Simulated assay, not measured.
Amino acid sequence: MTAEKSLILDADQVKQKIKRMAFEIYEHNFKEKNIVIAGIDGQGYVLAKLLAKQVESISPIEVKLVKINLDKLAPQESDITLDCDLKEVKKKTIVLVDDVLHTGRTFTYGMKPFLNIEVKKIDTAVLINRGHTLFPIYSLYTGYELSTTIKDHVEVKLSKDEMAVYLH
């Protein structure tokens, strides 16, 4: 028996949400010459790339794209690393990005590398906020708020072939 999946956002809606989030990032950071958009490896990093491209297309802000590598299933046991030197993000505004905010655990661990250096501020951005946070994390930039049960699964597809959000 396969779980039935429902389309939550189609490709045009996903693109619209990303564009709106990019405008919000620009509005909150319009005085900055450059910012760091740091995506959590996987769909979070894909979303970060799309947001970075959109922010640069609508504003004069220069964006440094960074990938955060961590094991989402066992973040406390894994090394959490960036694909750049920490010096490159020091004293910058960081926008931490993931595809779905569920419990806040992944975001919490994703912040770890930035806690060892001085940063200007850390904002968070997610395409889908499920609102079941167990950690004191909220998303400043949210594409879509989705009320779900704990057992529901949200699937985000951000490839060239398919851009959509499904609920299982």
Score class of each variant (00 low, 15 high):
Asp99Met: 00
Asp79Trp: 14
Val46Ile: 11
Leu73Ala: 13
His153Asp: 07
Lys151Val: 00
Ile80Gln: 00
His28Val: 04
Gly110Trp: 06
Ala11Ser: 15
His153Leu: 01
Asp83Arg: 03
Glu62Trp: 04
Val89Trp: 07
Lys120Glu: 15
Gly110Cys: 09
Asn29Phe: 02
Thr93Tyr: 00
Leu96Ile: 07
Leu134His: 12
Asp10Pro: 02
Leu65Tyr: 02
Asp99Thr: 00
Ala164Gly: 04
Arg20Val: 15
Lys19Gly: 05
Lys19Glu: 14
Leu167Asn: 04
Glu56His: 07
Val66Thr: 12
Ala38Asn: 01
Leu86Glu: 14
Gly42Gln: 01
Leu167Asp: 00
Ile61Glu: 10
Tyr26Lys: 11
Glu88Ile: 02
Tyr144Arg: 13
Ser59Pro: 01
Glu145Arg: 10
Arg105Leu: 11
Lys72Arg: 13
Ala22Ser: 15
Gly143Cys: 06
Asp152Leu: 02
Ser159Cys: 04
Ala52Thr: 03
Leu9Ala: 00
Ile25Val: 12
Arg130Leu: 08
Gln54Val: 00
Thr81Ala: 09
Lys5Gln: 15
Leu96Thr: 03
Gly131Cys: 05
Leu70Ser: 01
Pro136Asn: 08
Lys67Ser: 02
Gln43Ala: 07
Asp98Gln: 05
Leu167Met: 11
Lys87His: 14
Pro60Leu: 08
Arg105Cys: 00
Ser59Gly: 00
Leu9Lys: 00
Leu7Cys: 10
Ile80Trp: 07
Asp123Thr: 08
Leu73Gln: 12
His153Arg: 08
Val14Trp: 13
Gly104Asn: 07
Leu115Val: 09
Ala3Arg: 08
Gly110Met: 08
Val63Asn: 09
Leu158His: 12
Asn116Val: 01
Leu127Phe: 05
Leu86Met: 10
Val55Asp: 06
Asp12Gly: 03
Ala74Asp: 08
Ile122Gly: 01
Gly39Asn: 06
His132Asp: 11
Val156Gly: 02
Val126His: 05
His28Ser: 13
Gly131Pro: 05
Asp83Cys: 03
Glu118Thr: 11
Lys121Ile: 09
Ala164Leu: 03
Gly143Ile: 02
Ile150Ala: 12
Val55Trp: 09
Asp71Ile: 10
Ser57Pro: 00
Asp10Phe: 05
Lys5Asn: 13
Glu27Pro: 07
Leu127Ile: 03
Glu118Met: 11
Asp85Ala: 08
Gly143Met: 02
Asp79Pro: 14
Pro113Phe: 01
Ala3Val: 06
Gln54Asp: 09
Phe107Met: 12
Leu140Thr: 14
Gly39Cys: 00
Val100Arg: 04
Ala125Asn: 10
Asn129Met: 03
Cys84Lys: 06
Tyr138Lys: 15
Lys72Trp: 09
Leu82Met: 15
Val156Phe: 12
Ile94Glu: 04
Gly104Lys: 09
Leu47Ile: 10
Gly42Phe: 09
Lys91Val: 06
Asn69Ile: 11
His132Met: 06
Ala125Ile: 06
